[in-house]
Computed example of a mutant assay.
Amino acid sequence: MIFSVLIISFIFLIRHYAVKHIRGDIAFLTEDQRKWISRTKNGSFTVIVITLFILWQSEINEFALSVTAIAVAIVVASKEIILCFTGSIQRASSRSFRIGDWIEVGSLCGEVIEHNMMATVIQEIDLHHGQYDYTGKTATLPNSMFFTYPVKNLNFMKRYVYHNFSICVKEFVNLYPMIPDLLHKIDTHCEDFIDVARRYNSVIEKHAGVDLPGSEPHIHITTTSMGDQKVHYMIFCPTEKASHLEQLIRQDFMEMYESNFPQKTE
């Protein structure tokens, strides 16, 4: 027992100094640093498990024989732990994501900052409100969730994203003549990055093997159940500019609507 404690303490001490060396003095970790920190922690855990198993092998064999009668009860009691281990194996074998990827599991979205045999840690991102900003919250997902919820890899959204939003118009007027001018306004806002967007969109199509909507802006008009008109926008833009571009496009629409239908604003 004393020898086991000494071994664990020694390995944890080495891991502490290794992680401290990898982290350095910088305030924000890079993706490579996170990968090496995760490898160091997982590697030290594996070494501890193997060492303790070798050290306690004879005691483990005797214990295994003594608990044969209650093996079923142990499996039931440790079901969640077993699911976490098998979920980790499933993640590793399917290569569904790695450190630095953006993923969505259930209602949680975020960037993977660490994963081990039991859980995956993500830095939460506010994707559901179209902001694409970090919320400052860290979520720890048990690996058993990978059997309950589909894992969506959103890694391509780190650079460019299909940003969707809508504008509701209460008055029923003919909005279709405004569409060409609205598209021209969007082209003006996107001219700085449109060439890069087209190339990146082509890369995503080749990687995914599907025909995506494309990098050009799309506008279509629908009607709600209350009879109001709804103008739907979809733009392909840099993720960090999505929210700002949405505000510019909303401003263009309101100014154009006020100019074309001045009597409706009275």
Rank of each mutant, 00 (worst) to 15 (best):
C109K: 04
F156N: 05
D133H: 10
V112N: 06
S144H: 10
S202M: 15
K206G: 04
K170D: 11
F156V: 12
G110L: 11
K206V: 00
M117W: 13
I167V: 09
V203Y: 03
I81V: 05
C168D: 13
K158L: 01
M157Q: 14
E111T: 00
G136N: 05
Y132A: 11
D101Y: 10
N201W: 07
Q90L: 13
E124A: 12
E124P: 08
L183D: 04
I99L: 12
S202R: 09
V105C: 11
P142D: 14
W102Y: 09
M157R: 04
I103V: 08
V173P: 12
G130T: 03
H128D: 14
V203S: 01
N143A: 08
F156H: 03
G209V: 02
D126E: 01
E104C: 09
Y162D: 06
P150H: 07
H129C: 09
G136L: 04
V203W: 04
K152T: 02
T138C: 14
N164Q: 04
I81H: 11
F156I: 01
T120Y: 06
M178D: 08
H129G: 06
D126C: 04
T135K: 10
R98G: 12
P177N: 01
I81K: 11
L154W: 01
S88H: 08
N153I: 06
S144Y: 08
E114K: 15
Y176P: 00
A139K: 09
R159V: 00
V169M: 10
T140G: 00
I167R: 11
T148K: 13
C84M: 15
I89Y: 04
S166C: 02
V112I: 10
T148R: 10
H184L: 06
T188S: 06
N116Y: 04
L108F: 11
G130W: 02
V203T: 03
T120Q: 15
V105N: 05
L183M: 13
V173N: 12
A208N: 05
L83F: 06
G110T: 05
I186A: 00
F156A: 02
H189Q: 15
N143H: 12
N143Y: 08
